[in-house]
Nucleic acid binder design. Sequence first.
DNA 1: GTGAAAGCGCTAACAT
DNA 2: ATGTTAGCGCTTTCAC
Lengths: 324, 324
Amino acid sequence: MTTQKDVAKKAGLTVTTVSRVINNRGYIAEETRKKVYQVMDDLNYRPNAVARSLSKKKSNILGVILPAVKHPFFSRLLSYFEEFAYQHDYKIMVCNSRMEAEKEKDYINMLRAQQVDGIFLASHTLDIAAEMKVDLPILTFDREIEGLPYICSDNLKGGKLAAEHLISQGCTNLAYIGGSLELDLLSNQRYRAFAEAARSHKVKYKSYQCQLNSFDLREYQKLAAQIFAEKEEIDGIFASSDLIAAAVLKEAAKNMIKVPEDLKVIGYDDLELAELFSPEITTIRQPAAEIARKSVEFLLKAIAGEKIRRENILDVELIIRESA
Amino acid sequence: MTTQKDVAKKAGLTVTTVSRVINNRGYIAEETRKKVYQVMDDLNYRPNAVARSLSKKKSNILGVILPAVKHPFFSRLLSYFEEFAYQHDYKIMVCNSRMEAEKEKDYINMLRAQQVDGIFLASHTLDIAAEMKVDLPILTFDREIEGLPYICSDNLKGGKLAAEHLISQGCTNLAYIGGSLELDLLSNQRYRAFAEAARSHKVKYKSYQCQLNSFDLREYQKLAAQIFAEKEEIDGIFASSDLIAAAVLKEAAKNMIKVPEDLKVIGYDDLELAELFSPEITTIRQPAAEIARKSVEFLLKAIAGEKIRRENILDVELIIRESA
DNA sequence: GTGAAAGCGCTAACAT
DNA sequence: ATGTTAGCGCTTTCAC
């Protein structure tokens, strides 16, 4: 492994100077600079980021804790997040918490040990703020926690839009289907607003929930099957994710129920996949790229010592396609 | 930030002893151990992994370079990879190369600078081995490169199975649809074996390719649309990924072509999503969990200095569902 | 404009 | 069973 020392020696200089040209600070003769670059190249030298982190007390690493990397929404979020972080010379360490409080705790500790400069924590189950005193910037997605800034899409508006669209399309018997409402996730506001809109329009509604937020497709399908088995004559369904909407579509097809003629379905997220199903899924668009962009922006600000707003709610949009 | 020194002082010991209990090496009085744990707890102390990495010359970080984190196959792979790595106390740094050689090079350098202990490199475009002399263990997925060990599913078998299944179901006019065959990816073997099987059964076939391996759904849809526009009376399609198969299904529906009655479609990967479409997608199952498990296993072995087999081909399986 | 030297937090001989 | 000390590769203050 080649170090700064090797470079310095070969260039007939000291590490100080080499460090200077690498970091572009202080005065350096153009001559020297050239020479150093030359030697670094010859030696195929890469500064050791670990040593640098230790010395600077800054790792340029961001931790990202997701409940399920494999969920299309989160993998897209991660993808964008990585892209923006990369643009700012930050690296990403990913963690899959699977909605397990224990793993979340572990991961936070791990990331802390790893000296990450900040953490993006999505849909967590844990009341970390209280539970463990963490000193570094944490931005939370889709959950509000005492003291921590958070970001999310406008879940209330989303739920309202969904209900109103369904109603305006003539639905009179609505259902919501989503993850467990027990965890105090902000996404549950989708249901709250949906229910409220239904009530204010005097339209019947009920809700179906997954056992836990398993992100398990089979669970979704079972739940969807249950809806049809109950023969409640539901004619409008709001699913809390496009994946769940897809499961509903699938079960509807199995039960010979025509969408959108006999049943209208609206999802949430606007996954790229939403257009791949037939009928194409009408949905509430959550601005994933924007969420990711702002998230790294806020995190970097916080790392730089700036105060950031506690509440960051991004707009959603109704995307009308075929399913409703 | 609290350090070993703080712990040592408060416990009335030296850093050596503290380090010893943390790393569980050498003799330590039960008494002392207890005391240290106690103090660490009181102080909410976490060993600084950066300092440790520097000292041990081992970071316990694995780099993962994927062409597209958001592609369901890769996000699933990543998810499993992370899980297994975590079990071995390894952390993951993710990179999204987007099939751009430049970014790949950047990322490799970045990971090298970051002192990762090994790299998992998927479907890359680059002839790194030649291009840059990288000294650390690299395991390649789906691409064979001079000198580097690689892992992949049995693409040849997959292509053969697909063709034979289609033929056995009565198809007489086949098509393959997938990413560009220009890049020398091992996944192109799917096409080669498919074509060979078609030939040996004297069945007509042709191929459709995306411009580049864009992993872009719209591209897939355009390509699928093209197939139907050409009116070639194709009755059996092998798509190189379930996502592409889904796009084909979608276009088929648009064109009032009944699947599987008039057209049979078979995918590749066996994404969880495959079951969500109607008809459910018949596919060649690529063992993602197994690939991930072996990958971290091999990487860890290589890191430990063991030799690992150069060629690692995992079995695939035909999963018959509704689309063929 | 460049160098010497201390220090980042930890590990690991080598002492004791 | 515990302490002393050097060193990991880099940055940074202070000299010159």
